[in-house]
Write a protein that binds this DNA or RNA. Structure first.
Lengths: 188, 188
DNA sequence: AAAAAGATTGACTAATCAGTCATTTTGCTT
DNA sequence: AAGCAAAATGACTGATTAGTCAATCTTTTT
């Protein structure tokens, strides 16, 4: 990825988070990235293309961070716990990016194509869940529903930790307690 | 509330859901409501004012629907279950309004004032949770966190039911199973 | 070092939109 | 039916914006 492309995406993340997508003109993004307006359109066909790129960039960073350290041989509970910690960790330490990612997720701005591409990156996680069910570790829940509940509860945990500005011990305790609560509901 | 005001809010809901807030000009809203552009600004000071009104309208319908049938004397679990069913029910039967409400919630478009006004309506629910904890029915969780997890899991349930287009028996089963999963995690 | 290829620029355009306001219509009172 | 106030109208304005493109600058090739 070229330097200018990265600069433009970073500038867009910055401004989108501060002002919102529709209050951020392309001219402002270009200026903030230190290039001319026209240059933006050399790298991205349209503003929507740039939004897609922002989304994919954020999702990539996010899923990489969560998946790092997971190996095939780990126990299902350990993997879930690992993801639990790293998800919240990323959210707390990247509040701007996290919030923006969430907004993009439910806005209808991201193209189908971009959404599909991102889902591929999480395929490993889904496979793990299916294995967990097959092995009888968690109750008989549709993996799709399991995944949604996991994510939903994580989002609630991040929002809570952000709101109450949890740090250090309090944060660790919150994460652990949250996971226990989730696991109690879900495990057999 | 005047007739025209209602018409304008309804038109806005319709178009916002279809096109998004920023792709919906006020002129279009007015036309769709069967009034002139200028009339919109007789009833709402600005477009943002209208968005606030839409948000409050949706939240009002939503919380009324959920809270209907709840009385002071019911057991904590019964109340939670009641809310669980009615939340999902409303979401499934009002997909347009539900989706729009969710989008408004996390966009930064709704004024602080409108958000505060809506929170008042849910105060009863919060009080109940606090009572449940005091009575030792659910584990020692911060009521704020409890509420967030409840909502998060409900949102996941609605999204799942929508995606898989659950109906009748399958839907009831999904709702019940989802509640059990939640309750297992949360209750002592 | 000349020429060709590629990247960058930013003034410009065509379109769009929130909000205004002078005028007209409606509905109420006497 | 005349007079009046409130409500409704929609053409218009001033501001903004996505995207273009001819001109300029930079880099690579010969």
């Amino acid at each position: 990825m070229s330097d200018k492309q990265t600069q433009l995406i970073e500038a867009a993340i910055d401004l989108f988070a501060k002002e919102g997508f529709w209050n951020t003109p392309t001219s402002k993004i270009a200026k903030h990235a230190g290039v001319a307006t026209g240059t933006l359109f050399n790298y991205f066909e349209s503003k929507n293309d740039l939004i897609d790129a922002v989304y994919l960039q954020l999702k990539h960073e996010w899923s990489t961070h969560i998946m790092t350290g997971i190996t095939e041989d780990q126990a299902f509970k350990a993997v879930t716990e690992h993801m639990w910690f790293r998800f919240i960790d990323w959210g707390i330490n990247n509040p701007v990016r996290y919030t923006l990612m969430m907004q993009l997720k439910i806005s209808n701005l991201v193209s189908q194509e971009a959404q599909r591409r991102q889902e591929e990156e999480m395929a490993v996680g889904l496979a793990l869940v299916q294995k967990g069910i097959a092995d009888g570790i968690i109750g008989d829940v549709d993996p799709d529903y399991y995944g949604r509940v996991l994510i939903a509860q994580l989002e609630a945990s991040v929002a809570y930790a952000m709101k109450h500005q949890l740090k250090d011990m309090a944060l660790t305790k919150h994460i652990t307690k949250g996971f226990d609560l989730f696991w109690d509901g879900v495990s057999k």
